Simulated assay, not measured.
Amino acid sequence: MRAPTAATPSRQRPAFTREGLVTWRFVYRDLTASLLPGCLFVLAGASHSHADAAATGRALARAAVYLTLFIYIFCVANQLGADPREDQANKPDRPLASGLVSRAGAWRRWLVAMAVFPLLGWTLGVLWWALLWQAITVVNNFTPVSRWGPTRDAIIVPGAIVQLAAAWQQIAPLDATAWRWILTLAVVLGGLGLQMQDLRDLDGDRMIGRRTFPMLLGERTSRRYLAVLILAMPAIVHILLYASRVDRAEVLLCLVPVAGLSWTVAWRVLTLRTPAADRLTYSLYTLVYCVTLAGGIPLLR
């Protein structure tokens, strides 16, 4: 009997179940950098605007649908725009690399999602953020921008801005407080996050000639630079986001998990240098982003 291929089991499932599996395989690596932080920022906005439970629940549901499609269109484009050799080296379980879907099938999914996404954005009152995200997705994945460290890092900052702004607007108008959080998180945590991600993908990047920051600076220098910035992350978060609160005990409770995760990440960056370790380190770094946002729920009341 012929052994089943990676794609065979999914084709035996009902269409809806199979499509759910395909979607999961496209996006699961990026949910802690997209869906989860966006929903946490909705809760922070609800706290800030004193929204009731019913309004908060509706906003969370809207944000969850929007953010799922938000990351889906990016991930599918990222895999369509990638050199097949890169995914075979770095992420062989991705749908295209594993044979779960064909390139034609991925293109059909992406074009349908790209058509639906601005309609969803218009329905939810965030059309311009949706259009900006589509532009960022195309530029990042289908132009040379992502092949050079400085431009690759620069484009992630507006990406984080449009993510967080659209999430907040599901529950409250954008005000000075919202913008302070959005800009701080996008510039400090967002820009740094891509460099963390690049550490795990060095083999594939070298294979296709991409010049990321760890390659431009050298891996050892890059790791030291990242570790210093991540060690300073709790202080940066406190000064720029948390310090305005007068309840010091509450601030401390929010700052402790940020510090614990940040310092764990810094230690791992310096001492654990295998691709598998770097993948986990990056995942832990995305949780720094999440717990920082979670601190806004009690602190923005």
Rank of each mutant, 00 (worst) to 15 (best):
R223N: 12
G204M: 09
R210L: 04
L216S: 13
A176D: 09
I155H: 02
L164W: 05
P214S: 00
A154Y: 03
Q197K: 09
P173H: 14
Q163C: 15
L199E: 14
L185G: 14
V162E: 00
Q170M: 15
A186G: 10
R180E: 08
D198V: 03
R223T: 06
R152T: 02
I156T: 14
T221E: 09
Q169T: 10
A178T: 04
Q163F: 06
T221R: 13
L174E: 02
A178P: 07
D175C: 00
Q169Y: 10
L164G: 02
A165T: 11
G191H: 08
L194G: 11
L174G: 02
Q197I: 08
D153C: 08
T177R: 04
A160D: 06
L185K: 04
L185D: 12
D153Q: 11
V187H: 02
L199D: 12
M215D: 14
I156S: 09
V162Q: 01
M196W: 04
E219S: 06
L216Q: 15
M207E: 12
I208C: 15
G209S: 06
D201F: 01
W168Q: 01
A167M: 10
L192G: 07
T151D: 09
M207D: 11
Q169V: 04
G191M: 12
I208N: 13
R224C: 06
L192H: 07
D201N: 11
V157I: 08
G209R: 09
G193M: 11
A154R: 03
Q163R: 14
D205M: 01
A172K: 01
G209N: 10
F213T: 00
L185F: 15
A178I: 02
I161E: 01
D175Q: 02
D153M: 11
V157T: 03
G193T: 14
L217D: 07
G191Y: 09
L217K: 06
I161T: 03
M215H: 14
Q163W: 08
R200P: 05
M207P: 05
T221Q: 14
F213K: 01
L192M: 14
A160K: 00
R224W: 13
Q163E: 15
I156Y: 00
A165C: 09
A167C: 11
A176L: 08
L185N: 13
R211K: 15
T151Q: 10
A178H: 00
D198Y: 01
R206T: 15
T151W: 04
L174P: 01
G218L: 06
G190D: 05
I171N: 04
F213M: 09
T221F: 05
R206I: 13
G204V: 06
M215L: 13
D175G: 01
Q169D: 12
G218D: 10
F213L: 08
T184H: 13
I155C: 04
M196L: 12
R180Y: 06
L183S: 11
Q197W: 06
R206H: 15
Q169W: 13
D175V: 00
F213H: 01
L202K: 09
L189P: 08
E219V: 05
L174S: 02
T184K: 12
